[in-house]
């Protein structure tokens, strides 16, 4: 077996950047090197990781979801209101949301629409629904979600266990299951998949539905952490999730994605913000510094890819 497969090289850069950042954070703030410390450092990365996996599933079929942030916000509002008071209706709404995602996927394929335009439009729909549901911030997280998100497993904190779990499930789904192969095939070469007798329509709808499912999980986890919702709670997730996928070794086209990388990318983004905060960098510079970290990681990846290409060319 080859030690350095393309998949592993793809994972190398994100893992190394996470490790470097983690060492820097530990060095700056030794308090983080504890059970509670790691949990505080990473627990808000769990919903981001789920949203990143959702975004990755969309990017896998060469689309982009610009409604991720507003959708997760809407789910958070539903979770803090309906799921808490009338679980049956609440879950029905969430299931319907996943259905809507599948429909969007089908519509984009059937009408040959640009996904960016459709999802941008949907972002206003989700945002509007969230404001209708919770005109003022409020709602209460259902006790059981709160209990799940604050659980204290032995050995490793919830944030770490959850991140590893999400990475493994997503990895199995995308890289190991036959469904994942077809979905990646749609991103890689749609026509080939179609000629092989698979329904591209069904594949795309499935990819979107799966993305909707992970985004719903993200919203629910987020409410479990924050204890209540706000119609604008997760607006950052749109860009964070895209950045997480790219940082984790994914690409915008070609069905080239890495589920484990996406989770690592989400953790890295969260950690980068903490590092800047521990360094006491002025907020005016923080966005710029975050961008700089992104650029450095991507530059390193580009260099590695080049050397890899040169290696195989010989």
């Amino acid at each position: 077996m080859k030690l350095l497969t393309a998949e592993r090289i793809r994972l190398l850069v994100p893992s190394m950047s996470l490790a470097v950042l983690l060492v820097a954070v530990f060095w700056l703030q030794p308090r983080t090197m504890s059970y509670t410390g790691l949990n505080l450092l990473f627990n808000l990365a769990v919903p981001i990781a789920l949203a990143t996996v959702a975004q990755m599933l969309i990017m896998m079929v060469n689309d982009l979801d610009l409604s991720m942030g507003t959708f997760v916000s809407f789910v958070a509002c539903v979770t803090a209101t309906w799921v808490q008071t009338d679980p049956l209706i609440g879950f029905a709404i969430l299931a319907a949301c996943i259905g809507v995602y599948a429909l969007i996927g089908a519509l984009i394929y059937l009408r040959n629409l640009p996904s960016i335009v459709v999802t941008l439009g949907m972002s206003f729909v989700w945002g509007g629904l969230a404001v209708l549901l919770l005109p003022a911030p409020g709602g209460v997280a259902p006790d059981w979600i709160r209990a799940i998100m604050t659980v204290k497993p032995p050995f490793a904190p919830m944030a770490i266990v959850a991140s590893i779990g999400i990475a493994l499930v997503a990895h199995w789904l995308v890289m190991r299951s036959s469904l994942g192969v077809v979905l990646r095939g749609v991103g890689g070469n749609e026509r080939t998949v179609e000629r092989a007798g698979w329904s591209v329509l069904r594949a795309r709808a499935t990819a979107y539905a799966l993305a909707g499912f992970f985004a719903v999980l993200a919203g629910m986890c987020l409410v479990g952490l924050t204890t209540s919702a706000d119609a604008n709670i997760a607006l950052r997730y749109t860009l964070l999730s895209i950045a997480g996928v790219i940082l984790g070794g994914g690409e915008f086209v070609g069905g080239r994605v890495s589920p484990i990388g996406a989770v690592i990318g989400a953790l890295t983004l969260t950690l980068a913000a903490s590092l800047l905060s521990f360094l006491k960098i002025s907020p005016d510079w923080q966005i710029g510094a975050q961008g700089a970290i992104l650029i450095i990681v991507l530059a390193v990846r580009l260099l590695l890819n080049r050397s890899e290409a040169r290696g195989t060319g010989q």
Partner: peptide, 25 residues
């Protein structure tokens, strides 16, 4: 008495900031 301002005026960002402040002791 240090002042920290989040860059994007977002609740999730501020939640993360507060958790960092906890870690900073």
């Amino acid at each position: 008495a240090d002042a920290f301002t989040t860059a994007e005026n977002q609740a999730t960002e501020q939640a993360a900031q507060i958790q960092n402040l906890i870690l900073q002791g």
